[in-house]
Design a binder for these strands. Structure first.
Lengths: 192, 192, 192, 192
DNA sequence: AATGAATGAGAGTTCATTCAT
DNA sequence: AATGAATGAACTCTCATTCAT
């Protein structure tokens, strides 16, 4: 990727993150990057495509970050779950462009929305399922019925934590209660 | 409230719900309502204030709908929880403007947002806590520690269900698994 | 005149005076007067006609104020001229609505402009001519040629003093030099 | 300066001159210049800034025109004064936007106004003072006291001529009497 | 590959005016 | 005589996009 394109992508990501899709103008991005507006169109064709590229590259970053959890741990699967949940909260807190995609206004870009969210969800479900399966194999967890359902439930819970109430302001309070919450959540899962 | 204002508010709510705040133009609302654009400004002063009034009135509707649950039921508290969750999903599915306010990118409306979301969250926590307390009193639930924490957790879970993935497309599949999910969730809560 | 009309006229005068013709809205006047907007139209038919009535009534006030000079003085005609000039400066400083009429933007109301300004100018020329004639009769002034020309010249000078440079900020400095200026101006007129 | 910008500036100047600031719309300027409205904003950012640029460039033109007087004449200083006054009247008659800035109601532009008017006034005072001083040196004029006061007085007189009454309609009559007026004005100044 | 001048459709907003009550 | 809800034309300004260089 050319240095100009790289620079534009990075700047776009920052600016979209700060002001959101609609409040960010192509002009602003170009000026911030100290490039010409025409270059944006040369490399990305349209504002929407630029945003898509930003989101896509951000998702790759998210996955990378989350994957690192598994490499480090051979520990108790409940600890891995806990680590994943905390890491996710931190990472999502940073990656606002992904959240931007979730805005109801993005319903107009329905196909893209579905692509992006479904892909990310499937990926996460797969990761979580893997952890849960390992827990079952190791005899740490008991999951009658489909494991996928439990994974989905965990994911729903994690998504609930994305809402600003919890991310902003009440973050610390939540962390301190986090083990409690996970305890309750995993009580139904834990073997004894 | 004059019939014109009423009509404009209803139309605005529908249109914001369909296309979101930015993609909805004042002109569009006015035309949809078959009223003059000037009337919008006569009654609401600005697009932002119109949106706020829409959100506020929608939240009032949400509360009303959710409150009706308690009136109808003297049943098992687990059934009430279940009914609340399902009702909430249905209601939120309709009242899409509420989600609009959940996005942290809405910087301009920040103060308004905090007020509105915090109020709604507090209200919901109170309702859920009430249900849980009744369940404990009736000997149906067992909640060691603070009840408020359980209520908060349930709320997080409910908020996780709001994300577009579940509202659009996968709605039916989710409903069919809903009892499973609630079962797991309430297993940690249930007394035996 | 009804109390409502009176109230509206007074308020309109104040508001036009503060913000000028274009920056003042009918709504603002009505609200300031705590009357309904419809009442403005009932009494004055249009914004332009309201403004005309304001200017007309203000000119009547100006003339009244300036006339009072002659009643008080039987003194040296040069003193009367001086008193007139000072009084005029003070009075014009108050009556901004008349000045508003002089704005280039008012060229579109050409007929009204001509009516108002010509009338006021003629009136002033007549007053000044009267003073000058008295001065000549009393042997205090020497005016070869037409007296009207001298009157006109004095009027031009007085109009020059209306510009903001002199009215705003430099007012005091000007007053202190006023006698000097008048001295020069009247030197050509004075008999010896 | 690009041809487009140049064209827009010229057209804006003409249109503001004809209809004044408020009655001139950006749309009208753009259409008159056969350019896109967006181009106006690309080059001038706002209506106010466009107007400022128009006024500024017009003042530059005024100064240039007035300066030419001195280059041509080595004549009697009274003739130079006369030439200056006549030239000024003609030039001001063309450059109506200058008057626009003279109105105290232009509160929004106040700081800009002060700068522009004070600068122009100072410039004119300097020019007139220069003429007067030359007249004194050449022994043509007699000015007891400060020369600056005389210059200021002349300027006040010149400003008095700017009012619409004299610019419109009565222009010819005034010109025919002009020498008379100047005669009186300079009588107090002339050395015999 | 890169530029930035130029565009024009469409946005939010204002406001003099009308009219049923 | 007085009201204020309702109107719609006109306004300033924004911005994604195009294109000649």
């Amino acid at each position: 990727m050319s240095p100009t394109k790289q620079k534009l992508l990075t700047t776009a990501s920052k600016t979209f993150g700060k002001y959101g899709f609609y409040k960010t103008s192509m002009d602003e991005i170009a000026k911030s990057a100290r490039k010409a507006k025409g270059s944006l169109y040369y490399h990305f064709n349209s504002k929407e495509l630029l945003f898509r590229e930003v989101v896509t590259s951000e998702l790759d970053f998210l996955k990378q970050e989350l994957t690192s959890i598994f490499d480090d741990h051979n520990a108790d699967s409940r600890d891995i779950i806990r680590a994943y949940m905390i890491k996710r909260m931190m990472v999502m807190n940073i990656s606002i462009n992904y959240q931007e995609t979730l805005r109801p206004e993005f319903y107009e870009f329905y196909e893209f929305l579905n692509d992006v969210i479904l892909e990310m969800d499937e990926w996460e479900k797969k990761q979580i399922t893997k952890i849960l399966n390992q827990g079952v194999e190791k005899g740490e967890l008991e999951l009658p019925g489909e494991v996928a359902i439990y994974a989905e439930m965990l994911l729903i819970f994690l998504k609930g934590l994305e809402t600003p109430l919890f991310l902003k302001g009440q973050y610390e309070r939540l962390i301190s209660n986090f083990d409690n919450l996970i305890g309750i959540l995993t009580k139904g899962i834990s073997k004894i």
